[in-house]
Structure formats: structure tokens, C-alpha cells
Design a protein around this nucleic acid. Structure first.
Lengths: 202, 202
DNA sequence: TCCACAACAGGTCGATTGTCCTGTTTTCAA
DNA sequence: TTGAAAACAGGACAATCGACCTGTTGTGGA
């Protein structure tokens, strides 16, 4: 008799599945990733997968709520909080991303944007979850601009629309970089945004 | 005996297929659209479909080269040519798009961006075709800025990176608008880009 | 006129998709 | 200690995917 040792660690199994799904969804895409592929990557059986995520939708929602939101939080919202002002944070974030992309050699795109582009039209609940992350992102950036205004670091800007422009430029540049595997769009946008903000900040 | 009248108009059949595929690919997505769905939409049989497009890849390539390239040409490159200067063209293009989206009530996103985000990582040939369209777009915009410099309408700008920023902002705003079905990101970016360009143009 | 081939009809094919099933093992509360 | 439910194993399931098949009809050149 072969002794089949079961791990029976539901939290760890769930984490393995969501980790594998997050990595696969943002690199290969939600639709392009099959459940069997995820089972293999996460080293879980069909039974375990079905227990934690009976349908693919729920796995997608878990990835969005747990991982994508966290990624935006760490790469954008947190740096915005700790840096001295918005332009410094934005410039640092771009540099960070460009360096990381140069290091591993391939551009997989912005996780939030990737998911949003693919699934938002198909699933209302995912659309809401993704929209909430976009809103939080814009809100954090807009509030940072407002704080800079309050601290007399800048004048004559519209925090809301400027925040939208920065996010749009970042997302768009990421999309272009992903499309032809080239970091140049990000470098260009970093330079232009820096120049734009420098002209506003004294 | 039922008389089955055959149309036998290969060009029209091909056009029907590519039209249906273009519309489906940019609204529902390339992977999410099945061949059977396209057969129904284009009202063609499996035989006709197999004759014109034996594999789905070729249909995707045809859509990119015939329709997506044409869409970018008409919505961006042509207006850039006929308007008095770049800022005017950009502002008009944004207004046009926003109006169109408000009219039909839903945002399906930028055709080029939609296709690029989904398939560029999976297929090298499609990536090249999409990259060429992006390059032509950037080139047209950059050349327009250069011409404005030559005509002494503007000074102290970097045409290349500014062109990248405009395209990235547009693509990103479209993605955000698509994600939560709201034209506001486009309106914000239009305003910010207009302000940015106005400060550069005398 | 005839024939080779393009154009099309209509159905079939294996592979893969996401989902779900029946058992077995572990956990935890009573 | 016992029983119920959670956690997991391993495979089966129908549906759908893209691809491709054989046959028929139209077309244009020799």
C-alpha cells in the first residue's frame, strides 16, 4: 500500500492556486489560460481545484481582489504615500518598472490593465472589482496632488484630470511596451510626464 | 429539387467574413470569438470559411492588416494631415471619439490596442503587424509635430516622445473608459493634453 | 466544348475546454 | 470516541473549439 500523505492545508493550497492563476492571467491572459494548465502549475488535483474554485469566474475574481489590487497598492499607492511629492513618486515608479522590465527581458504589461481589457466586457462583477481598483488608484493620485497644492508645492493644476492623464499615460505606455516588447514608450512617457510636472511645480 | 443558387462572389464573401471578424474581435475579443459564431454572423458555410481562411490566425492577420490599420488611418493619421496643426487635430479626434461613444452608449475600446493586448504575446506575426501600425501612428504624429516646428508654430518640444505620450494617453484613457464604460477618462485626458500643448504652442 | 480549378455546401473529426462526480482522508466539535 | 463536514484524489462528463473532409457548383481559359 502506497502511503498518500495529504497536506490538508487549505490556505496554502488556495494561495498556490491564486498565485499560479495571477501569474498566468497577467502574462498569458485569462481566456488563454486553461484550468488544466493551472492545476499543473499549482500542483493541485482536480478535486482540490473544484473545492476551492468551483468555477473559473471565482478564481478570476479572487485574482483581481487579492493580487491585482495588491499589485497596484504596492507599485503605486504606497510610493505615492512615502515620497516627498507626486512628481518624485511618479518618476521613481517609472524608473522602477523600466528597470524591472529590462532585467527579466520581457514586458507582460500592467496587471490591472491586462485583466480589465480582457474580461471587463464579459463579466459585470469583475468589471466592478476592476473599476474599484482603478478608482482607488485615481483617488490616491488625485489626493496626492491635492496635498501638494495644500503644501504650496504646486499651483494651477486640476488634480482629478491630471491623475487620470498620468494613469492613462502609464497604462497606455505599458500596452505599447507589451505590444512590441520594447521599454521605449515607458521611457518617453516618463520624460514627458516629468517635464510636464516640472513646469507646474515651482 | 430545390434550386440552390450560389452567389459565387469570392471578394464579397471574404469581405463579409473580415467585417464580421473585425467587429467581433474588437468588441468581444479574438479568443472569445469562435469560428462558428463568425460563420453565423457572416452568413457563410464552413466550406466557404475554410476556403478563405483555413486557420483562425490568418483571419486575425487579415483583420489587423485590412481593418485595424484602416481604422487608425482614418481616425488619426488622416485628421493629422488635414488639420492646421497637431493640437487642433488631437482635440478634434478626442471630441469625435467621445461623441461617438456617447451616441451608441458603449465603449468597445481602441481596436489596435484591443488586438495588441490580447494576441501580441501569442503570435509573432501578429505582433509585427500590430507593431507596424503603432509605428506608423507614432511616425505620423511625430512628423506632424516636426512640421509645426518647421512652420514656427511651436518650439522646445521633443516630437518623438511627445507623440508617444499622446498615443499612450489616448490608448490608456480608452482602456479605462472601456473598463468601466465611462467616457470621463477620455474627457480628462483631452483637457490635460490640450492644456499641455497650448502651453507649448505660442 | 471541355476541363481544370476556384468557390462553396454541409458535415465530421479529435482535442481541449470548464464543470462536476464519486470516493477517501483529515479535521474539529460535541 | 464518534460523527459530520471540510479538504482533497482522480477521473468522467458534455459542450465547444478549430481544423478538415468529401462532394457539388460555378467560372474561365484552351
Amino acid at each position: 500500500m502506497i502511503e498518500h500523505k495529504r497536506t490538508n492545508d487549505p490556505q496554502a493550497v488556495r494561495r498556490r492556486i491564486v498565485d499560479a492563476a495571477y501569474q498566468a492571467f497577467v502574462t498569458r491572459g485569462y481566456l488563454a489560460t486553461g484550468m488544466s494548465e493551472l492545476r499543473a502549475k499549482a500542483s493541485v488535483t482536480g478535486g482540490a481545484m473544484a473545492h476551492h474554485f468551483p468555477v473559473k469566474r471565482e478564481l478570476g475574481l479572487a485574482v483581481i481582489r487579492d493580487r491585482v489590487a495588491e499589485a497596484v497598492q504596492q507599485t503605486w499607492i504606497e510610493p505615492l504615500r512615502v515620497c516627498s511629492d507626486a512628481p518624485t513618486a511618479i518618476d521613481r515608479i517609472f524608473t522602477e518598472i523600466i528597470d524591472e522590465l529590462s532585467r527579466n527581458g520581457s514586458v507582460s504589461g500592467c496587471p490591472l490593465n491586462n485583466m480589465a481589457m480582457e474580461v471587463s466586457r464579459h463579466d459585470e462583477e469583475m468589471q466592478e472589482a476592476l473599476g474599484a481598483i482603478f478608482a482607488a488608484w485615481e483617488d490616491a493620485l488625485s489626493r496626492r496632488f491635492q496635498e501638494d497644492i495644500r503644501l504650496k508645492r504646486v499651483d494651477g493644476i486640476r488634480p482629478d484630470s491630471l491623475a487620470t492623464l498620468v494613469i492613462a499615460a502609464y497604462s497606455g505606455a505599458m500596452a505599447m511596451a507589451k505590444a512590441n516588447q520594447d521599454t521605449r514608450p515607458l521611457v518617453h512617457c516618463q520624460a514627458e510626464l516629468a517635464a510636464l510636472l516640472a513646469s507646474k511645480y515651482a
